[in-house]
Amino acid sequence: MDNELAVDVTGVTKRYGDLVAVDDVSLRVGQGEVYGVLGPNGAGKTTLLRMLFGLLHPNAGSIRIFGRTWTEAGVSVLDGVGGFIESPRFYPYLTGRQNLEGLALLDGAAPSGRIAEVLGVVDLVGREDDKVGGYSYGMRQRLGVAASLLRDPRLLVLDEPANGLDPGGIRDMRALVKRLAGSGLTVLLSSHHMDEVEEICDNVTIMSHGSVAFHGTIADLRAMAPDPGHLLSTDDDGQALRLAHERHPGVHVRRGQEGAGLTVTGQPAALSAYVADLVRAGIGLRQLTPTRTPLEALFFMLTDTETDTQGDAA
């Protein structure tokens, strides 16, 4: 394998009138790595991937895929690239196999046996001759990955592949991406779920309002993660709050939303001392649970968001 980057995005900007959807974004994806583009709704993730596929043209900056640009190579820049933007679409009245056969013909026909091979990769063997209209959402997502693999790509680009899936579907999709990455395929995926990126990716770019909020490895991200905070419920929240203010400056305790329980933040040692003092004071603990993982807390801090919702407006 040579040292040429799979994806080299430099200073890319995309404007829609006064709206800057992507603002001077750069990222570099090495061959063989799993790279995550993470961000809340409207962060610019999908817009960036659309420019990668040539569906949109940047107002500034450059995009190279395996060393080629759209200006230099035209559509052949996508040789060796597969993937989908947003949810893949299929003819519901055709079977999974028939949909793949049609896509293969449009792309110049797949080698003999390739359709059966990719159906096996995405665990759709046994359902390939069922009409897609009867597929679950997760099965259609996996069929989208199968379609992306028809051309035996070197780079697989997936836009929110687990979005909208139930917990079982999310687990299956993550396992599939990990298997594909283990085969040496380069994977670039977008997500608005920190746990998905943490589990799958080697490196990550976090976007917020069209700009880059973080570049680096998952290890770098973990090193930056703050204390996530805990939800605390006692049989006397008022007394627990007073005890914190009077004797534990190392923890910050406040009322929860709509007065439900308390939210506690602080370093682990300070939190442990506070909880021990609650017990000594005879205050009964009913609940002490993390509000979110440390990486989730960092994600919300970097992107200035407090809730995580579905879809991506940009």
Rank of each mutant, 00 (worst) to 15 (best):
E117K: 00
R127N: 06
A60M: 06
P58W: 11
D107P: 00
R140Q: 08
T71I: 08
G36D: 08
I65M: 05
R151N: 06
V81H: 13
L56V: 07
R154F: 07
G126P: 04
V75D: 11
F66N: 09
D129L: 00
R154K: 12
R151C: 02
L78Q: 12
R68A: 12
V125G: 00
V122S: 01
R154I: 04
I63L: 10
L150W: 04
E117A: 05
G61M: 12
G96K: 02
Y137C: 00
V77D: 07
L105Y: 12
V37N: 10
A60E: 14
G67T: 09
G80M: 11
Y91F: 15
G108W: 09
G83R: 06
Y137E: 02
R127C: 06
F90I: 09
G80C: 06
R127H: 14
G144Q: 00
G42A: 06
Q98S: 09
I63P: 02
T71Q: 13
L119H: 04
N41C: 13
T46H: 05
G54S: 07
L100H: 06
R97A: 11
L94Q: 14
F90C: 09
V145G: 01
D130M: 10
Y91P: 12
L52F: 14
G36P: 05
A116T: 09
L105W: 14
S76D: 12
S148R: 01
G61H: 08
Q98L: 08
G39K: 03
A116G: 14
S76K: 09
I65A: 02
L55A: 04
V132T: 13
G82E: 07
R50V: 08
Q141N: 06
D79E: 13
I85D: 03
G42Y: 03
V145Q: 02
F90Q: 11
F84D: 02
G138Y: 02
D79R: 14
G42F: 05
S87F: 05
Q98K: 14
G61E: 10
R64A: 15
S136I: 01
G96C: 05
A147I: 01
E33C: 09
L56W: 07
L103V: 11
D107Q: 15
A104N: 10
V77W: 07
I63Q: 03
V118A: 03
V121G: 01
S87E: 15
L119G: 02
V77A: 15
E33A: 12
Q141I: 09
L106P: 07
G74H: 11
L124D: 03
A110C: 13
E128P: 02
P111G: 08
A43N: 04
D130T: 08
G42R: 03
L52Y: 08
I85Q: 02
V81M: 09
Q31K: 15
G44F: 13
G83I: 10
L94G: 10
L103F: 14
D123A: 15
A146S: 03
D107N: 15
V122N: 03
T46C: 08
A60K: 13
M139F: 01
L78T: 10
V132N: 08
S62T: 15
H57F: 08
Q98P: 07
Q98T: 06
E101Y: 07
G138C: 01
N41R: 14
P40I: 13
